[in-house]
Computed example of a mutant assay.
Amino acid sequence: MDRPQRYAVTRPGPPGRHGPPEVVVVHLTGTYTAAGEPVYADEAGAFRVAIEGEEARPLTALPGPGRHTCLDAVPLP
């Protein structure tokens, strides 16, 4: 089965502000993590993730306090 070229990744809203989550579209970059996982990035290349199933693992730090290690990922056509 072919790997999806794009995913919609949901990032949490600002902590303590009860803001809505942000949905970011990421694209397959053609690069891989040290463990051999394909890397996806947003249009600017600033937000990078590795995706396994429907979970995205951030490879770059998210803004704000706390550390989110697992984000929702939905494949896009």
Rank of each mutant, 00 (worst) to 15 (best):
M1R: 05
M1E: 13
M1L: 03
D2S: 11
D2G: 04
R3C: 03
R3L: 15
R3N: 03
R3Q: 10
P4T: 05
P4I: 09
Q5C: 07
R6I: 02
R6A: 10
A8L: 14
V9L: 11
V9A: 09
V9M: 11
V9S: 04
V9W: 11
T10S: 14
T10M: 12
R11H: 08
R11A: 14
G13I: 02
G13D: 03
G13L: 01
P14L: 14
P14D: 14
P14Y: 06
P14C: 03
P15L: 10
G16V: 01
G16K: 00
R17S: 15
R17L: 14
R17Q: 15
H18D: 15
G19V: 01
G19H: 10
P20E: 15
P21T: 04
P21E: 05
P21N: 02
P21W: 03
P21S: 00
E22T: 14
E22N: 08
E22Y: 06
E22I: 10
V23N: 02
V23S: 05
V23K: 13
V25K: 04
V25R: 12
V26E: 01
H27K: 06
H27M: 00
H27R: 14
L28G: 00
L28A: 14
L28V: 12
L28W: 14
L28R: 12
T31Y: 08
T31M: 04
T31C: 07
T31H: 09
T33I: 06
T33G: 02
A34Y: 04
A34I: 08
A35I: 04
A35E: 15
A35N: 12
G36D: 13
G36Q: 05
E37A: 14
E37V: 01
E37I: 00
E37Q: 13
E37W: 07
V39Y: 06
V39S: 02
V39N: 00
Y40C: 03
A41L: 03
A41T: 01
A41M: 01
A41W: 02
D42M: 08
D42Y: 02
E43W: 04
E43K: 11
E43D: 15
A44H: 12
A44W: 10
A44Y: 04
A44L: 11
G45W: 13
G45S: 02
G45T: 14
F47Q: 09
R48V: 10
R48Y: 10
V49P: 09
A50I: 05
A50G: 14
A50P: 02
A50D: 01
I51C: 05
E52Y: 01
E54G: 11
E55N: 05
A56S: 04
A56V: 05
A56E: 03
A56D: 05
R57A: 12
R57M: 07
P58Y: 09
P58E: 00
L59V: 07
L59W: 09
L59T: 00
T60L: 02
T60G: 07
A61W: 05
A61D: 10
L62N: 06
L62E: 09
P65L: 12
G66H: 07
G66R: 10
G66K: 08
G66W: 05
R67E: 12
R67A: 15
R67M: 13
R67C: 13
H68W: 06
T69N: 09
C70M: 07
L71D: 01
L71Y: 13
L71P: 08
L71I: 10
D72K: 14
D72R: 15
D72G: 05
D72P: 15
D72I: 07
A73G: 03
V74P: 02
P75A: 15
L76W: 00
P77I: 00
P77W: 01
P77S: 10
P77F: 07
